[in-house]
Design a protein around this nucleic acid. Structure first.
Length: 318
DNA sequence: CAATCGTGGCG
DNA sequence: TCGCCAAGATT
């Protein structure tokens, strides 16, 4: 890639973005860095359409980091609704707490400070630094990786995690000024979300169709799978999700048997959920959990901070 | 590094 | 219908 190519790619992509960008609330100029941070947490592995309504209610309930930090973690998990990966709600709460404690209640603009927050990895730190603070950081999410990979190296689909070469390439393409870099990052991401999609890319509508190495090569399919396929049917994850759904809906969940842990004195479940809860869980297809399995998952949920046992019942943390 | 962690819409 | 997969992070 030389400078002429990079310049042309940026011009075409940003022009396309100007005409085709979705009107997303976290892109508005009046959206706070906190609003951007919340959106980035919610958008981790979750589609925009599902995030939108939850994001709106969330920023209304928790307009600043201090508002979330002051709330019980169980409230955060409940407000998370059915976005999935409820640990993200816990980590966002922990991030808000750290922001209050270490940054005066304001989302820090520094990439390293962002990276130090719970639940913030390389992508999210760069995204917030770029989108909320207009800093020139290369952002590599799955959309941008797919677009750049296809256009520049004819790579059908991104690998499991971004390589150093991908970061070097993204850094070389990045416009110098923070504002231009943010616009470019948004534009490539949007192109990946709307046109250069994983399954059926709309190459006819792509502003980069005459530049794309992958299209030129005949759109070859991937040889080796990228991310490992997510198991779901009948797995622990499914049952874990079902238990969390019961807790969000109205818990607490009555536990069948109980004993006091001799070491800590804490109460721990011994023989699974009560009959009513088993019925509730069994309504979901293919769930037939034995007590030992339920106990193990309850233990995991408590260890993760997603649930607590108390007085013979399981509930969201206070 | 590979496994784990939810959910639901869509082709 | 049912497998694919969506702005990742953590251990």
């Amino acid at each position: 890639m030389n400078d002429v190519d990079a310049s042309a790619l940026r011009r075409k992509t940003v022009r396309w973005y100007g005409r085709n960008a979705r009107d997303l609330p976290w892109r508005h100029s009046d959206c706070s860095p906190w609003g951007v941070l919340v959106s980035e947490f919610m958008l981790q592995q979750t589609p925009v359409a599902r995030v939108l309504p939850v994001w709106r209610s969330w920023v209304e309930t928790y307009p600043a980091p201090a508002d979330l930090a002051a709330a019980p973690t169980g409230d955060a998990v409940r407000a998370w609704g059915r976005l999935g990966y409820p640990r993200r709600a816990l980590r966002l709460h922990a991030a808000a707490t750290a922001i209050v404690r270490d940054h005066g209640g304001e989302v820090p603009p520094d990439n390293d400070a962002l990276l130090a927050l719970p639940g913030v990895g390389r992508y999210t730190a760069a995204a917030v630094a770029s989108f909320a603070f207009q800093q020139a950081h290369p952002v590599l999410d799955t959309n941008i990786r797919r677009v750049l990979g296809r256009v520049l190296t004819a790579t059908p689909e991104p690998s499991a995690s971004p390589s150093a070469a991908e970061y070097a390439l993204a850094a070389r393409l990045l416009p110098a000024t923070g504002n231009a870099a943010a616009r470019w990052n948004s534009a490539v991401m949007e192109l990946g979300a709307l046109v250069c999609t994983a399954r059926t890319p709309r190459c006819d509508d792509c502003p980069l169709r005459t530049d794309c190495a992958w299209l030129r090569a005949g759109r070859p399919a991937a040889e080796t799978p990228g991310r490992p396929r997510q198991a779901w049917h009948g797995t622990d994850r499914q049952l874990r999700g079902a238990i969390m759904a019961v807790l969000r809906a109205g818990g607490p969940v009555v536990l069948e048997n109980f004993r006091a842990d001799p070491a800590s004195g804490a109460e721990v479940p011994e023989a699974g959920l009560g009959a009513a809860q088993i019925d509730a869980l069994a309504r979901l297809r293919d769930l037939n959990p034995d007590d030992a399995r339920v106990d193990r998952l309850i233990g995991d949920l408590c260890a993760d901070g997603l649930a607590v046992t108390r007085d013979g019942s399981l509930s969201l943390p206070q």
